[in-house]
Amino acid sequence: MSILTFRDVSLRYPPQPGRKGAVEKRVLDGINLQVASDELVAVIGRSGSGKTSLLNLAAGFLAPSAGTITVDGVPVRGPGADRAVVFQDDALYPWLDALNNVAFPLKLKGVPLAERRARAQALLDRVGLADAGDRNIWELSGGMRQRVGIARALAAEPRFLLLDEPLGALDALTRTRMQEFLLRIKAESGAGALLITHSIEEALLLGTRVVVLSPNPGRLTAEIEAGFNAEVRAGASVAAVKASPLFKRMHAGLTGLIHSGDDEELAA
């Protein structure tokens, strides 16, 4: 059991050089958050509220201006394979085929060729792409690419999956299927997950917990436990769960919290 912890984390971007009267931008302020291995914490917030910044801090791409981020008590000092990131626009390597993209983290670790191919193939099997190994990345659909990206992250055997709107670019039907898929994969992998999303519905459906990030500066203003992902994993259909009165009530409550007036995407 691992725990990813944000303690009093703040992030300021320095002022843009050259711009007159520029001030540093306070993006995140006093963030306290924990993600455990058995959790999927969904972060929702308006565009520009600092969600990606939060994830980049967890990934180690950014260093906090104040506060600490730790994994099992050890401060995060930079990116590492214990926190594998899945990017919104997949960030797969077009010069590698699907199999070698998945095998990439194993290659970095020096796993011998035959073994890493076998392990990458097993991961492709798991994400339902058993036959896609020799396909070029640009020949894959958006949903397939995201599955390759997730398989690649899993190959690193991370303690945490950091997912920045991994389903944001997908059409509604594919997205629903991918939501079920994400839940299954997350549970099987035993990794904790931090999921950034624009969609309240997705956050409620997938998150064991949902936290709301309010902008200017980004603060965590609400945190709710959501049990719907357990229902889905227990076999309930996604459509039925979404139609339940409790789901609708929580959805409405979260929508109010984010007072989404100027952001139509949040209503989705």
Binding site: A59, G60, F61, G78, P79, G80, A81, R83, A84, V85, F87, D89, A91, Y93, F104, P105, L108, K109, R152, A153, A155, A156, L162
Partner: peptide, 14 residues
Amino acid sequence: SKDHVNAARSLGAT
């Protein structure tokens, strides 16, 4: 691509 570099770093690349 910045994402490509970041992806590699988060997957354990030196």
